[in-house]
Design a protein around this nucleic acid. Structure first.
Lengths: 134, 134, 134, 134
DNA sequence: GTGGTCTAGACCACT
DNA sequence: GTGGTCTAGACCACC
């Protein structure tokens, strides 16, 4: 599953704990429907190696997601997206999940006295670089 | 200085340490020129009470900013923005300081499969609510 | 808080993970009302030392109980029983929580061909030794 | 040997490893004399299918019991209870084997503050349901 | 191969 | 003092 070496992206410089970055990324992918019920996720060891992080850190993220009912553990097998999870959420709800980070960006823009128009323009640029067209 | 009870805004629920939230807010305000050399900032006790946070947390933020040369401590007097700090930064540099948070928002949008246009629209709305027109 | 060195009892020989033994003991004490909202529990380090177990093992138990809403974390302070937890449960429900272990004991008695009367008698003896009169 | 589909009872939800559940059940049955020297036990495949468990798990239990001298492996034939094992144990010893689980139940009763009398009454009920009269 | 548990021990954030 | 995060690495249970 070497093609999954970029399954997760983490920012080691951030104050946000790595395990939490993973939890939130996976939650978003399930909310969007990118990950569907039954789908296997890369193993703890694979992710740990790909991200150069200790396996226990990955395991902690997976355990939390399991406790939350989003992942399913199967003895001796790779974990997978749980069969009976909250299904992919409607677009309006997903947009809401984006709100906190945008609010933070807006607060920073204000403190930096960056005009709204410039902030919007920069965001537009970044969105178009990122993953290409959605 | 009761009008300064909202000098800082913090998010106690965040994983980002409070002292760091304070440090970064103040850096941004200096970068934007909202705070100028010689300007007094609210005392540790005032801020601690207003934010319902332990005074040492505020003190830690102020000490870091002092070590950084951004604030000046004066015996028995309120701290103030240091005389010889890097002056307010040009608009282009300030825009760059906004980039990391917008990159994070863009990554989240992509994982949530929120179309760029919708994300931009939401950001626009939030910017216009926030502090009013800039 | 040295008098709390026996706050928890664990069985290191068991296959049941230590952290889970702790979680279940604390759940039972809250269910019975022995632990009430707001009450502080011994610190991670105290328990770790008293039980001769690694602090992270204790921490894991406490984190699970916090995720479950039974404990409350307070930055820099000892954890305590959450204010808004499911209150102490009625006697009938508590009796039900005892059922699984008694079912296991009954199954073992059957496999050992120990007569019901003898099993009951032994249980009676153990109950009366244990904590004294309840 | 389809009538042996319920030769073992396991609890897949438990933290106790399946192979260990099997080992202990068989030990108890031998201790009680329910299983006697020379008696055949169901094959790995039969048990695996009946319990919906991986054959290697059953095999591991059987191997441990063989290493312990309780079972005998015979090329091409079903395993059987070893000829020269510790014979069925006297009633007093078997009662002792029941003690650990009853001690655990007593500890739980105490933590739940369930009165001894109620705990005993519940145990009595369960014993009489279980396998019928012994 | 899979995930889980635990230890020893460092360093961080906060009161 | 409090809890949290992470690493390095051992050993276990299961497929």
């Amino acid at each position: 599953m070497s093609s999954d070496s970029h399954f997760f992206q983490i920012n080691t410089g951030s104050t946000e704990p790595i395990y939490r970055q993973l939890v939130e990324q996976l939650r978003r992918r399930v909310a969007s429907g990118q990950l569907v019920a039954g789908q296997e996720i890369p193993s703890v060891r694979e992710v740990a190696q790909a991200l150069a992080v200790h396996p226990m850190t990955i395991s902690k993220a997976y355990s939390l997601l399991e406790a939350e009912g989003l992942l399913e553990r199967r003895r001796g097998l790779a974990m997978r997206v749980a069969a009976q999870h909250k299904r992919a959420q409607p677009a309006a709800d997903r947009l809401d999940l984006l709100r906190p980070t945008l609010e933070r960006a807006a607060a920073e823009a204000q403190q930096l006295e960056v005009p709204a128009q410039q902030a919007l323009h920069l965001f537009d640029q970044i969105l178009n670089q990122e993953g290409g067209a959605i």
